[in-house]
Simulated scan of single mutants.
Amino acid sequence: MDAEANSSNFPLPEAFLEFLNQNGIDPSIYAASDSIPRYIRLKPGYETYKEEIEADVGCKLEKVSWLPDFYYLPPDVRIASSKAYQEGKIYGIDAASGAAVLALDISVGDHVLDLCAAPGAKLCMMLDILGSSGSVTGVDVAKHRLAACRSMLLKYALGDHCRLFVADGTTFSLPPVSANLVSESRNESEEVYKEWKSWRPWKERKREAIAREKGLSKVFSSTQEPELIFYGTNSGVVGLTKNKLYQRAHCGYVFEFGYDKVLVDAECTHDGSIKHIQKFEQWGWTTFQRRVLDAERTDDLAILQLQLLTNGFKLLKVGGFLVYSTCSLTDAQNEDVVDKFLSENSSAELLEIDAARNWPCKSGRIPKTLRFDPLTSCTSGLFVAKFTKLAI
């Protein structure tokens, strides 16, 4: 594909067109932005409010036939100012991201780990599916981004079975809280976690607000202890001592009592996200060059992605499911990572995603992996692979 020939058709810098050419990505996907609808998920229990929500947002909610509880709207509709959004009846989440969550096959009572939880829409969907059972542990390396997840949980009243840790996803090693930990005897002098309060010191709130405004992310060292910034009443934290909560599990314990489901929606170059790429028209293409096109950064990302996938798999119990996804369309961040991971983990088996039979997506280079893209799927770009852990 000739990058120069395409440069006049799309408002993209020449260097990015060359990046797409090198990775075999069709630049025309970025011209499809006006035809990609805005997707929302209707919070379970609010189906009877559909007509009221339609009047509120000023258009019909068209059902996504292949994804339960998802609807699409015209791309220019803004939902943030709507009463339905402000009251937590709907939230925005791309249909491809919803498919990645659905691929986990979350069941009642599951303990789920979201290893790269921010910005939080997938976290909300997991909790919606679980209802009043199980637990979700959300982890993210950036405190201000995880604080935004916390705000979403409070807004949508979904945090009762959730806990959030600021931590390095490549080294996070805390298992789900089990009943035996809560009931275990403790020293009388040890303080226990009581019900979480939303009040936080003014200085902490100010720091987080400044970080959000500047797009800053605190660099979290892999040697630091995870920081618990939120926990729901029924997340398994209340009644525990700090020592019990931060007790790392040995390998044999994780095999039997690890997470039932793990989502690793890894940090990537986001080249498959049309809306993300469009933001660089405001942010500046110099920033884009550094974040997306820099060869050293993309090499580092592939290493990080493998580390995240490997650690997520370590925390998965035998027979559990792990989904790896990125919103990149490059092989280097997707199939190449999967190939490397499978070669290093004999207990990992790549699975067919049963629900995908009716999904509007393509097979990846590796059989059983999937790719969503704007032209094929009318969604943002997303790669999805599903694994299970074998007892060997």
Rank of each mutant, 00 (worst) to 15 (best):
S8N: 12
D373S: 14
D128C: 11
F321C: 10
H276I: 14
A5F: 14
A302M: 11
R78E: 14
E335W: 08
S377V: 02
E188A: 10
L350T: 04
K389W: 08
D110V: 03
F341H: 05
R365E: 13
G312W: 04
L322N: 04
Y46P: 08
S132Q: 13
F230N: 01
D160T: 08
G92W: 09
L20P: 00
L154D: 11
F165S: 04
F70R: 01
S81G: 14
S273T: 10
E87W: 08
G232T: 04
L316R: 04
N23T: 07
V237P: 02
F313S: 02
M126I: 09
S273N: 09
E87V: 05
F255A: 15
R357Q: 11
S343W: 06
I229C: 01
K197F: 12
N345M: 12
I90S: 00
G169Y: 01
K83R: 13
V139C: 02
T326I: 09
P74S: 12
L130N: 02
W199A: 14
Q333K: 06
T369Y: 04
H111P: 05
K314P: 06
P176Q: 06
R248Q: 14
T326P: 01
L390K: 11
S132V: 11
K122Y: 06
F321G: 11
K206A: 14
K194S: 15
D300Q: 14
G169M: 03
S325P: 01
T233W: 11
G58S: 12
A121I: 02
N311M: 11
